[in-house]
Design a protein around this nucleic acid. Sequence first.
DNA 1: AATGAATGAGAATTCATTCAT
DNA 2: TATGAATGAATTCTCATTCAT
Lengths: 219, 219, 219, 219
Amino acid sequence: MPKPTFFNLPEEKRQRIVELATDEFAANLYHAASLSRIVERAGIAKGSIYQYFEDKMDLYIYIFGLAAETKLAAIQQAMAALGPSPGVFDILRAAIRAGFELARSNPKLAAIGMNFLRERDPAVRGPVLAAFMPMGEAMMDQWFRTAVETGEIAPWVEPAVARLSYTTLANTAMEHMAEGHMTLDEAARLLEGVVDVLEYGLRPRAEAGGGPEKGGRRQ
Amino acid sequence: MPKPTFFNLPEEKRQRIVELATDEFAANLYHAASLSRIVERAGIAKGSIYQYFEDKMDLYIYIFGLAAETKLAAIQQAMAALGPSPGVFDILRAAIRAGFELARSNPKLAAIGMNFLRERDPAVRGPVLAAFMPMGEAMMDQWFRTAVETGEIAPWVEPAVARLSYTTLANTAMEHMAEGHMTLDEAARLLEGVVDVLEYGLRPRAEAGGGPEKGGRRQ
Amino acid sequence: MPKPTFFNLPEEKRQRIVELATDEFAANLYHAASLSRIVERAGIAKGSIYQYFEDKMDLYIYIFGLAAETKLAAIQQAMAALGPSPGVFDILRAAIRAGFELARSNPKLAAIGMNFLRERDPAVRGPVLAAFMPMGEAMMDQWFRTAVETGEIAPWVEPAVARLSYTTLANTAMEHMAEGHMTLDEAARLLEGVVDVLEYGLRPRAEAGGGPEKGGRRQ
Amino acid sequence: MPKPTFFNLPEEKRQRIVELATDEFAANLYHAASLSRIVERAGIAKGSIYQYFEDKMDLYIYIFGLAAETKLAAIQQAMAALGPSPGVFDILRAAIRAGFELARSNPKLAAIGMNFLRERDPAVRGPVLAAFMPMGEAMMDQWFRTAVETGEIAPWVEPAVARLSYTTLANTAMEHMAEGHMTLDEAARLLEGVVDVLEYGLRPRAEAGGGPEKGGRRQ
DNA sequence: AATGAATGAGAATTCATTCAT
DNA sequence: TATGAATGAATTCTCATTCAT
């Protein structure tokens, strides 16, 4: 959490710091990101950043949070347009569109999220997950849990697993796109195609057994 | 490629170096891994590691190669047991089982592969891909291409995208497991479930249009 | 170019760093000069020198520039005393005297220039020449070009070659002196003698052919 | 001096070592030259070079000596063709031609000499000069001394200075050429032109005073 | 006599963090 | 509250030389 000092800063200066820190964490994983570069580009004193934030991690969590908030807001707005009690696959499609919209309008915010999903060091993942798990993972798990309850998807689908799969695939598609292998439109359509597949594959089937024959959780 | 010096080393010493380097690259992405730590733990002089390898990347590629070889061998053995001309989804299931088997018997080797999939720096990805692409990506792309030709999956499925999706999902599941959230059996069964879904979702359908050709929504 | 930090340093400290760096580059060619030694002698932390300069080359160019400026100022002052439109050989004699004056009053500054003339690595020569060519080589070439135009020296004398010869000879004489084989006065007189010879030898001659046009022998 | 071991080596192996060491010292000044590279390319064991030579300097002096011998032989052969009691300027021209001939036929040997003339570290210059001074400098000094005695050049010309000037100019021209700014022929002709200038400038003049007006040694 | 593995000092450079002003 | 200089440990890599086999 930033120190009070940070919020006493003139708006413009605070903005500049946020912006340049965002740039840095969008372009590099945590350890490769450099505080020195941030303060240098922001034109502030090296020591000042420690007046505003406890340390590098504190700054990172703050920046990550801003990106997460923005994305969450976009998703919730998209969901609000879906009407009452939308299906989980409609939610997913809406979330995808919202996510890609954000990636188009603000690629750096999106990059911060993508980078985090690549983060490996537990010393980095831990604090961030601790801070944001409820906001991200918990929300999605709820979607799937509901979908199972409403019978929209088969009962053998585990929420955490579905969420992880969706997240992973979405991130992969966005990176594939960010690396220039696809246009944003192609990536979005592709991912909606994946949802189609999931929708088709995950829905309860008429077959006896209530799940895929050879795998899945049958206990 | 290691220098000849390395292969002239007493078996035991060579083993120790491989093991400690494997530990290091299993626990850290490339840049976070430290040659200094490796030599320190191995109890050899700073300069000695450069008697064995050209540089850090040379060592990394060697260690990565050992992991890749082991994994490839396991996969090919599993495929050999499938009988003649197996379907792509049977291959995937076999590969998954083999991969998870390896992760059980040698979690560090598996971790090296998982870490690479998180690698972001092109200066790291590039040389490794150059060295191992034929062995990994090219092989998988071929599976999917064949499956399209044999009509096993729908023609709108792009090999590279399918491969990326599969790889990413498998990696995520393995990491999920490696972090202790699932037992190995659970993870394996889960992933086979995903393949079930894919098999069901990707196969050519009788409906008009034959699939999400543009990836668009059909509702 | 030094970083602003460097110029904010207390005068005394800045002086000490300049002095010790000058010592180091006066005593060693670029690659043999050691930043570690400089910081050690200066009693500052290893990392501090990078607060002041971008890198080793940045420091070297700065130190070289100080030496070059000093020498140039001395030469221009000497030239100013020559009266209007002096002949090229008068200029050379003045430059020699000024250079040797400098070598007497500040042998280390002179040594830096002499060392550069011994430098072989293009990675060292390149950046320095790029920064100082106009100040050094271009200026001298102009002297000789003018001298050809005014008919003071024969038209078959190429500016670049004349400049190179003069520079090399002057450098050799100064080094010879710096090594204690001659007194400064002896060296200066000697070099003026060389200029005499050149003046006599290079001037347009009455003989047919006007000089060694092809550089060939005439006997 | 090489150890006896070296001369017991099979001819071919000895040749290879000499050749590759020559390459290395032709391409780099002493400190930049790497024993490691030499033994690596020669395909001999690192330790072996220490069976043949005391240390790096011992090897360098040996290689330098071979180059010096070759050059000296070429010069003496050229001088032998001059007939009895040749003039000093004819000797110089012959020496120049011989030197450039050698640079054409064996650029590496020539490069070793050129590099030495750029050497700065007294720890390098010292031992080499001690070993070869009589062979090189003493010989040339004798030429000029004789020329003064025979009245061929003016008495105010000091042998050591004339030798240094000649050496320096010749080296500069050869380097200029080696860097591709001149063809070998152009360089040779240019240098003979310089000798012309020297011949013209250094010869005893009719003027009173017996030397150049403003400079020269008048004691 | 030959080998070649081992050594360790030394090189340049980067970094997050501290602290006196 | 802001500054920005100072820190020193850490990084990868190179080198001439030694020494047990």
